[in-house]
Nucleic acid binder design. Sequence first.
DNA 1: GCCGTTTTCGGCCCGACTGTTTTCAGTCG
Length: 570
Amino acid sequence: MKNKTVARILYEIADLLDLDGVPFKPRAYRRAAQAVESLTTPIEDLVTEGRISELPGVGEAIGKKIAEIVETGRLEYYEKLKEKFPVDLFALTGVEGVGPKTAKLLYESLGIRTLEELERAARDGRIRKVKGLGPKTEERILRGIGEARRMEERVRLGEALPLARDLCRRLTETGLFDRVEPAGSLRRGRETIGDLDILAIASEPNGAAEAFVSLPDVEEVLAHGAKKASVRLEGGMQVDLRIVPEGSFGAALQYFTGSKAHNIALRKRAIGRGWKLNEYGLFDEKGNPIAGKAEEGIYSKLALSFIPPELREDRGEIEQAAEGSLPSLVSLPEIRGDLHIHTTWSDGKASLEEMVEAARERGLSYIAITDHARFSEMIGGVSPDELSRQLDEIAAVNEKLAGFRVLAGVEANILRDGSLDVPDRILKELDIVIAAIHSHFHLSRDEMTKRLIRAIENPNVDVIAHPTGRKIGERPGYEADWDEVFHRGVKARTALEVNANPIRLDLNADLIRRAIDIGATLAIGTDAHTIEHLGFMEYGLLTARRGWAEGKDVLNTRPVDDLLAWLKSG
DNA sequence: GCCGTTTTCGGCCCGACTGTTTTCAGTCG
């Protein structure tokens, strides 16, 4: 039984309880579901070790239910709930404007259970006849159904961030905004984004909101007030704009950055002091504002050190901010090099010299050329002969450069049994060896763990690239005992990559945090195949920060001499 | 159902917008 499956059941219970009108319990189930979801070890292990209630939000009752799911594959309580409301709630509430109350109303009045039935009822004009609903709701539902199908996918960070920046630039250019900033999950650096939250200051809010909903690529206006407007852009991305007074900007930025769980915890902290926190500011007992213009003020008044957006998930950051023990997160200026780069020697689109030039322009002081190897099955990689010629080219380039270093490397394939497809005598010649799995993704958890460990313990291997092999929105990563893999990595002095390609972001933030706890060293690499891909570093960095990584945890923050020393000793 | 700088009992975030209402409930973030 996978963690994801258990989490999904808990989420569905929360929805069903919502539908039933039960107060408070839904939140408890969602919180537990979240904890299970972000767990990096198998939930079964916690159950067998009797440590299930160590998970935040899991008490006796939910703990027992999780155990039942793990042990029997089903949950009586859940089956009963489903019997009571045999409704495809997930699909129905996925429709914009339909929440649990409306879903219940629709089920009880019209017997609607599925998206198809909802669509038919809307087309037949039956929804407008239900007391409490009307023609507007019916139209909205009909429109929402098409969207629900289309919008199920979240957009990757690599698309959302450039889009948000472009939008902010265009709003600023209207001259109607004094300040425009992206907030929401994008600001927290999440790997996928549901919709964009933009926060703004404008002296003429009405005109500014008007300009926003009138942008040429707005396909539909979902809401349009003076403080809040929502649109859907061509391509389906929903954008929410909030216009706030200057004195509340910090409070609003804090509030709309989230996460929801972080905000709730923060509000509780305010309430504990007899204060109130909302998007307009932090207020004392008498309702006098004591902070709100800047985010920093809110945190400091609540006796917390400033919490970077990437940490705001209520995963222990508030407690650590209270004792002043937050990590000092790795930042972009600390990154000195890129340790994963392809060129036209293999499947890259730019030549070695072009890559070097582009990296220098970005202010890096070294890069590692790590083309795919072609010693066995991989096509389009470098052969042993080509690799030695590439070594000559790299030596020649280094000869010409001052203050920049090109490291000779390779991305070797980890074969089914954990051996590499490049002979050790050649690996020894290189500055850096990256090893990665590119085939046989479906081994058992045990076989995969052994395979990775064998590669990790090869003395020539320095970095395991994209360790889990997941591709966001395409395929899950393969199963392995990650704790064990990380422990072996620490012992063998083999680093784990944070692959910065926005489709990969692998390791993900949860596993990064786990790896760091175990003592692992990370290497953030762009896996660049073009000059533009060097810009992926930002996504890898955000992900590393979400995993609580500090500069000292990241190999490529080191000066090149330190790096080379580490590589030799490993 | 969970949890503890109000608490082992009694709380549990809060405001904007919309549609349907004639004073507010539902949804969303």
